[in-house]
Design a protein around this nucleic acid. Structure first.
Lengths: 271, 271
DNA sequence: CGAAAAGTTGATCTACATCAACGTGCGTGG
DNA sequence: CCACGCACGTTGATGTAGATCAACTTTTCG
């Protein structure tokens, strides 16, 4: 691993992702760039964080894939989520003493990190940015909740279909898909641990998807031939991914700026 | 349902919960109380929020039980989490346009709500409180992640054991358990939807736990006779619940206060 | 009190796990 | 440059946790 400010600073996937939610000012972009300045590299199959370990700092994935996973004492393992470029590792769970999960790289990876205390700076000085980070955290939770629905109520075939579509969508946002083709640097064992299935069953399920012509796989390259049908099978509803940028609900609050604080008529819940 | 400022203001479960993370100043407590001022009541089996619907405001559970759940188009349903007193409903997902899940009450419920924009006020004027809220959100995500581990890699018996211990612990923090006895206002159908199992199998699993003397059930009252054994069965590691209050990692940052980076005067302080 | 909701239990079915054996690509060291 | 080893993928045979179906009992509640 190799640390320190990077000489070149290419496009930041995080900025890309946050921009899909909120148009960032120059000031905010500068601050964001500052946060991502300390970059380090790690080879594939490295633990960036180990369950039970103390948190160090907040990490921002700049390139490569990783998984967030939890293990049972007897060795059974569950992959909670895939960590893709632009994802923030433990922005809030950093407030915990120690990690309740591990992060392991799947490919060589480029990670920026900044001390946890800077979160407070964001809160204080950049509330809009803080909201964007919060949005990103909410999105991540939504992804996990959707995965919970998969494991609880979808069949193996549906789960696989759903996962493939989800990854395709998430990667699209950061320009990592071309004509339905993208890299899936993942063994069947990892897929099994992500979907709560056995390796063998993953293999058979992928075979079914391949045989029906919906996807093609060559090594780590996967091509989605028919997103529509795949989405149908997985009962995929992309709402939870927050891909379309509606007019931000907070945009007005940001503009009027004074926000509220006191004078606001008691809200009327329960429509 | 009955809205507006409540005449009496008993102990706030949220304050209780946050206090387990951070000792709140008088000022912060006052602000928190202000946030919880607009209280409304809802009967059992009411939707507080429906998948696909627009978010209204941030809600704080003050009393009663609810579930957060997602449904597939064909009707299959997954309970994502149980919403208990002190839990905040959608603090960050409020930044989404519309909800990707539903919230439904299980019992009569008392809910406080405040407009989403106030989140910005918290960021700006009460960074410590913002951190406490973020901690609470991280804790909720940790609970969901642990549930994902359950559905993916634990057997039915293990899942049930784990869930019972989890609920017992969470309820303990807000003083809702007495000698291992607590109210579980939940049908077996809901348990089934939470554990990704069938009703019948939930029934048999509960029977096994009852027959082995680990728990007793009378209507909606459940008694845990042997937490230790139940924890073993469920491979329960309470780390993710963040129950023990270590010295907050940010405590020092809060004290030294200036934190780091570009010092910006807090633009919008307290009311 | 009567009906619907919730809980219970046995019989049977099945999606997925486990076991086993073999194929295949590839990185490393000789 | 080959070969050996090993991680990974594949496929068939068989086992099983949990689903489904069905019938019945108990509780809840208008």
């Amino acid at each position: 691993m190799n640390s320190g400010p990077a000489g070149t600073m290419p496009e930041s996937p995080l900025r890309l992702k946050l921009s899909s939610y909120l148009k960032l000012t120059d000031d905010e972009q500068a601050f964001l760039a500052e946060l991502e300045r300390a970059v380090s590299r790690h080879p594939a199959r490295t633990d960036l964080l180990v369950q039970g370990e103390r948190y160090g700092s907040v990490r921002v994935m700049r390139g490569g894939w990783a998984i967030r996973h939890k293990a049972l004492p007897d060795g059974r393992r569950q992959v909670i989520n895939f960590v893709l470029p632009g994802d923030i590792i433990g922005i809030y769970s950093n407030l915990f003493e120690t990690a309740d999960h591990s992060i392991t790289t799947l490919t060589p990876v480029e990670v920026a990190s900044f001390p946890s205390e800077k979160i407070l700076d964001i809160f204080r000085g950049y509330p809009r940015l803080a909201a964007a980070f919060a949005w990103s955290a909410a999105r991540e939770e939504a992804i996990i909740a959707e995965r919970l629905l998969s494991l609880g109520r979808r069949t193996a075939l549906e789960r696989m279909a759903h996962l493939i579509v989800e990854l395709q969508r998430r990667l699209s946002v950061i320009n990592m898909v071309e004509n339905g083709l993208f890299t899936l640097p993942v063994t069947q064992e990892i897929l099994a641990d992500a979907m709560g299935l056995s390796i063998v069953h993953i293999n058979r399920t992928l075979r079914r998807l391949r045989d029906s012509g919906l996807i093609e796989i060559n090594g780590q390259r996967i091509t989605v031939n028919n997103v529509g049908e795949l989405s149908n099978i997985g009962q995929f509803d992309d709402h939870y991914l927050q891909l379309v940028r509606g007019p931000s609900r907070l945009e007005s609050a940001f503009k009027g700026n004074k926000a509220s604080a006191k004078p606001k008529p008691p809200p009327q819940p329960k429509p």
